[in-house]
Amino acid sequence: MSISTQPARWTITRPKGVLLPLALLVLAILAAFTLLPGVIAPHDPIALAMADRLKPPSLTHIFGTDEGGRDVFSRIVYGTRYSLGVAIAIVFASALFGVIYGAISGMARRGIDNLMMRIVDLFFGFPALVLALAVAASIGRGLDSVALSLAIIWWPGYARLVRGEVLRLRERPHVEAARALGVSEMTILRRHIIPFVVQEVNVRVTTDIGYALVAVTALSFLGLGANSPTPEWGLLIRDSRPYFGSAWWYLVFPGTMIMLTATAFSLIGDALASRRAA
């Protein structure tokens, strides 16, 4: 039996079916929206244009307009960097903290490990969104506070995942061999454990971006996130509600974007997980 001491390389092989290519296409579109909004968006996302108020989709405004005559498509394009940007920031910050915390806990002595995991359990004891709502409400409204509150509830998942992986890996022969050769615990962690753990974390990060996006937009929808006229997607849905009966497009397109984005990240995460399992 041969035991690999190097992490597997991550490549996405040719997918079966059309879902993954579609998900990658959505991701590419989102990347374009984020990086080149001024090129893609045909209209100013903020300036009012009352003559075009609540116009249905047309060639001029493919997703219609809102109550201020603003182009919904342009607002969605510019909103990508808020909604998706915050979601990515939340997941990366949580992953970074969770990995460090989980790794320390996994390598620590039993007493410290227990204490650190009980702290993690405390976070799991509360319903996640309710806890995020409470934190966001207490530290004030705005995308910053949404990001902070969601990061606070998000990191324990990574800590637990990483700690489990560390416990599993540290019994592996290559780690024991390194230890027998007198390699320090920190080096073992850095060179022989973390690279394996990161692969698991990668899968989770990809999937979590979609979930975090839903959470960010949910908090904005509830009035805790971005403030008007920021074209954040959850806020667009919140603002559209009084007009749903007369302007369906105002609600439907931002909602569809959230659904497509979350699904795309979920599919890509699944693909990564499948590849990892294989």
Partner: peptide, 15 residues
């Protein structure tokens, strides 16, 4: 919060 007309008035002020 909760009054679209009020929010819109502030948006017009902003603009």
């Amino acid at each position: 919060a909760g009054f679209p007309e009020f929010r819109f008035a502030a948006t017009v002020l902003q603009s």
